[in-house]
Design a protein around this nucleic acid. Structure first.
Lengths: 226, 226
DNA sequence: CAGGTAACTTGATTTGCGTCAAGTTGAATA
DNA sequence: TATTCAACTTGACGCAAATCAAGTTACCTG
């Protein structure tokens, strides 16, 4: 059985359900299914039938895609409040991507059927969803531009700064292997290692450990441009 | 005064207005404003107030963004039937990008106000729009992955093949400067020049000229993997 | 038609970073 | 506590492609 107030809390987290009246919100909450995923387990895998909208209630998830050449590519890291939206929109689509939980994670699910009904019922939800997707498109465009024009060092610094500002800055501790970070930034673990070392020797305090990167002096990073 | 049948023709081109009933379609057509843009003129510029959805009725437009480092980055090339959608979704947004017509171009415009009313009236339009944006997100994700994992040669070949298949294959003639193409693919004009030469010396028939690339033997390109 | 100029080509040089290889570290398990 | 193995570090090397430089070419304008 669902714990209903948890469902509402989860729903409220997400931009697409912001600014709805109380009734609509309650209706949405009724459609939500909660699910726990333990660290290391997969939320979904490539080839799965994509039939739900997924909302991150708590935790971190990495979404990867296998390229034609057989390489694995990290598409995005989902944080609390993010959602995986595209998949719910297409009929009969198979997942192109796999999603693995990096920490113990709680997600909320809404089936495509329910979501489509919701859109038809509430224009506000549709418009919020359009906004969210539009924003994501903008982000991706910006990211694409950055990838093509900047060096690995810049991208790494930017990524750390951006990610840390999304999280609670006081205790920035990224549960990421170098391997994953490398994949995400389109580089190799060796290069990541070298760049991080370079950052810390030039005065930026970064603690490196197995599966973790801890950032102490974030401000300094913002001026890195190599 | 609008030529009304043109407006309908334009509207029908676009995925987001597909599969609407006749009445809704007529209603949409009434909202559409047509505009001609001559080669070399700007459709919009960075800083403009973004208050319309833009649909490409005919022609080619390049959309560019200036990066923080002052470089210009080509974000996308709009072909007939494409539309610029994100901008219409956000309130009070300024354009981040500029759009220049590469050929004489005809576009259709719908104001944000009209479009939002339309969404509220017709769930079908909203869902189509969601689908279109979702597709764009998927494309961008795929593109991001490709950028990070493949060589310039591959990306160039892929781009030519994809673009030619979107257009009328019989007469593929890209009105692009090497400079722009280089920007789009994240490389330099020199490299583009070299790669194209390489393609043509290895049997693929490509005519190169000032501001143009003409592709005769497209099939051969599909096997290029360097 | 002549002259200017921007787009393009081609070559030489440099460099960022991927890849290979050989350690080193540290957590997990017995 | 010893053993093991994956994650990580560090160095050496090579290559794709950026950059620099010096021409060509072809369009445009007077």
């Amino acid at each position: 059985m669902l714990k209903h107030h948890d469902a509402i809390a989860c729903v409220k987290l997400v931009p697409i359900f912001q600014q709805l009246n109380h009734d609509t919100l309650a209706e949405v909450a009724k459609l939500v299914q909660e699910r726990h995923v333990k660290k290391g387990e997969f939320v979904f895998m490539a080839g799965d039938h994509a039939d739900s909208l997924m909302i991150m209630a708590h935790g971190q998830v990495k979404v990867t895609q296998s390229t034609a050449s057989g390489r694995e590519q990290l598409i995005r890291l989902l944080q609390t409040g993010d959602f995986d939206g595209e998949s719910v929109l297409f009929e009969d689509a198979q997942r192109q991507t796999s999603a693995e939980a990096l920490t113990d994670t709680q997600i909320c699910l809404i089936t495509r059927q329910d979501f489509q009904k919701l859109i038809q019922r509430s224009a506000a939800v549709a418009i919020n969803m359009l906004n969210a997707l539009g924003k994501r498109v903008s982000e991706l465009e910006a990211q694409a531009a950055a990838t093509l024009t900047t060096s690995v060092g810049e991208r790494l610094a930017n990524y750390l700064v951006e990610t840390s500002s999304e999280l609670d800055t006081a205790d920035f501790d990224l549960p990421l292997q170098k391997k994953d970070l490398a994949l995400y930034l389109g580089t190799s673990p060796e290069t990541i290692s070298r760049k991080l070392k370079q950052f810390s020797t030039s005065g930026l305090i970064i603690q490196r450990g197995r599966n973790h990167i801890k950032l102490v002096n974030i401000d300094g990073l913002m001026m890195v441009n190599s």
